[in-house]
């Protein structure tokens, strides 16, 4: 650690400048990058612009939240002289993410921004990366071992869940049956969102909360959970959908069961169909995180760490509760996900 602080940083910066210069944007030119990368360890002097190489590893590929994080980081990359890229696995699981981290580590970027799939399981590969001199920035999911990673940036999921619960309690007037739809069991982030919700619901003893039901991240499953619950419970007043696909499914399910308006949908995270749902009132409230900001802060923190500046170990990002009334305001719009950039 101390050795890297003394002499690792300037050497590293030089090496990175050389690698980035050779790499360009296409993969075919990386032959040049590695030869110059090798020579740089001998101390090639005279490179003026400092370009850093930062890779973001999302929890899984093709997810709007993580795509928005990437967009946020990308938006500040040029001004920070960062060559930014994204690599990920198609499933949200520690054994899928580990090989990606391993391979990214082999390319020796200056920093890895990562949305961890497991707080404990991801320690060994990231420790390996950190030992290789790579700065680790955790985004939306910290590790159990705080010595790995320079910072963690996330929104407080339990708090988000509480906001959802409070919104739900008010919307249904403190009575009726409420269902919860989650993707799959076993994910701490979703569990925190559910726990926060349950916490808030304690203030509404007149509400009957059904057990968590799982959609396996399938919109159609979420839809049928909603329509069958509507059939089984005449006092079905609200549904809390913990991820985007479930909210989208709930919109369909409410339509199928002809309970649009009567059934209050409170969602967590957004997508284009959900924004439309908020605008037309199908979705009563939606907890919107600020992944774009997480991406921006994440990249800025990475560069600071590379340059040897200090970064707070914990950084949080705000929420907004989007409703029909506020969804079109600029304040809420900047929270909405951007999947292409």
């Amino acid at each position: 650690m101390t050795r890297r602080l003394r002499m690792g940083v300037p050497l590293c910066a030089l090496a990175v400048a050389a690698i980035a210069a050779g790499c360009g944007s296409s993969s075919s030119s990386s032959k040049a990058s590695s030869s110059s990368g090798a020579s740089s360890s001998a101390g090639s002097s005279g490179s003026s612009g400092k370009t850093y190489h930062v890779v973001y590893i999302p929890g899984l590929t093709g997810n709007p939240f993580y795509s928005t994080v990437a967009c946020g980081a990308k938006s500040v990359a040029p001004q920070m002289h960062v060559k930014f890229s994204v690599q990920g696995a198609p499933t949200f699981a520690v054994n899928a993410q580990t090989p990606v981290v391993n391979a990214v580590t082999a390319t020796h970027p200056d920093a890895i921004m990562i949305s961890n799939d497991d707080p404990k399981g991801m320690i060994p590969p990231l420790l390996q990366a950190q030992r290789a001199g790579i700065k680790i920035v955790n985004i939306d999911g910290d590790l159990a071992e705080k010595s790995v990673g320079v910072t963690n940036i996330q929104s407080d999921n339990a708090y988000g869940g509480q906001l959802a619960g409070q919104a739900m309690g008010k919307l249904i007037g403190g009575k009726g049956t409420v269902a919860i739809i989650d993707n799959d069991p076993g994910f701490p982030i979703s569990e925190a969102r559910v726990a926060g919700f349950m916490q808030a619901m304690k203030q509404y003893p007149g509400v009957k909360v059904l057990g968590v039901q799982y959609s396996h991240n399938e919109t159609s499953n979420a839809a049928s959970i909603v329509s069958s619950t509507a059939a089984a419970h005449p006092d079905f007043a609200g549904v809390y959908t913990v991820e985007t696909n479930n909210t989208e499914g709930a919109i369909t399910g409410a339509r199928d069961a002809h309970v649009v308006g009567k059934l209050k949908i409170v969602g967590y995270d957004t997508s284009d169909p959900i924004v439309k749902g908020i605008q037309d009132g199908t979705v009563s409230a939606d907890i919107v995180q600020y992944p774009y900001g997480e991406g921006q802060v994440g990249l800025q923190s990475a560069v600071k760490a590379i340059q040897g500046q200090s970064v707070p170990r914990e950084q949080t990002q705000p929420f907004v509760v989007a409703t029909k009334a506020n969804v079109n305001t600029a304040n809420v719009q900047r929270f909405i996900y951007k999947t292409s950039c």
Partner: peptide, 8 residues
């Protein structure tokens, strides 16, 4: 992985 990997 020092944890079960139910989803993986």
């Amino acid at each position: 992985f020092a944890t079960t990997t139910i989803a993986g």
